[in-house]
Design a protein around this nucleic acid. Structure first.
Lengths: 182, 182
DNA sequence: GTCTATAATTTGATAGAC
DNA sequence: GTCTATCAAATTATAGAC
């Protein structure tokens, strides 16, 4: 039952962080949500830093995996940038709340060391995925710059949409990526 | 000494929220930072919700004021969009930390009612300023959409730059606004 | 693996003296 | 306006029984 428990803990913690940030989840609240006691949560993740870092890593792995391989996407006739935008949109609409690492990224100055490291990994790996995708599309020139623009725009689009509580703000913002000004 | 004190409290609270969010400032920490006791802070702002809302409103007023009038900027031969980008860049470089309302915006789901309302006002007023600026520049067509794109991109650029702890990420992202793809 | 019990700290807020 | 003193609640974390 250990693996299931840890998965449940990670899931509940993710939801809580995405709604209110690192200080918004507690061992007691997580325990209550899955029907155990806080000391049992400590058995699986000994400190809050451990749990926070695990949540961030799990979220990043899951998100990057869901994108797939950009070369294969291109070979299949799909635009990887559209796939990437849909990945963010799905995170905003299906699950509720911010991007987990967008949330943690804002709070970076008060987070424990290893949580910061994992949060940074999300951005590093996303930029790498996008850079490869842009190169695959023939944008050999400013691929890194385009990648930083894309992840920044979509994180900001989630933020604006989260504040205003209307998905259409996300869609309005995302158009800058799919239909650039001319 | 009342007005000075309230200004000092607002300033310290702003710094703390911008580093770690709403749960990252406390009456005791603010009091200690300016050399008084927490009960004295309660004298000026009776509840945390009061103080949080006041901080958000003060920040928004200050930021919008600093932009000036977009029509006058255009008349003076200045590009209001560049002025807007510089406003965000200054907030990131001079003061350290995130945009206050970008931070609060991420946490909106766990914030008290009136803090949410003030945070939303920041976005509403920023989008209105940008929309007017784009119209003034002759973009009568999708001015609202362009406004949402601009504020989203720059909030996201601050976020990415904050996580990676390097200003150049902000500059890379901001180029999407000033030098759009073609 | 999960529990009870508890320690040590921090939190928002209030009462009342000066 | 600021202070001391205090409260009730919540927090991370640990010890030890089962």
């Amino acid at each position: 039952m250990s693996d299931d428990r840890e998965a449940a803990i990670l899931q509940v913690a993710e939801d809580m962080v995405r709604q209110g940030g690192y200080n918004s989840f507690s061992f007691r609240n997580i325990a209550a949500a899955i029907g155990i006691k806080s000391s049992s949560v400590h058995y699986h993740f000994s400190t809050k830093e451990d749990l926070g870092a695990a949540v961030a890593k799990h979220y990043t792995d899951k998100f990057i995996d869901s994108l797939g391989n950009s070369d294969e996407l291109i070979a299949a006739g799909k635009d990887p940038i559209n796939v990437y935008v849909k990945g963010f949109r799905k995170a905003l609409s299906e699950d509720k709340g911010m991007c987990l690492c967008g949330m943690l990224g804002a709070e970076v100055e008060v987070l424990p060391e290893r949580v910061v490291a994992e949060t940074r990994q999300f951005f590093t790996r996303n930029i790498a995925w996008l850079e490869k995708a842009y190169r695959g599309l023939g944008h050999t020139k400013g691929a890194k710059e385009k990648a930083v623009q894309a992840v920044s725009l979509l994180e900001g689009a989630m933020l604006t949409s989260n504040v205003m509580d209307e998905m259409r703000f996300f869609d309005m913002a995302a158009k800058l990526l799919t239909k650039p000004a001319h």
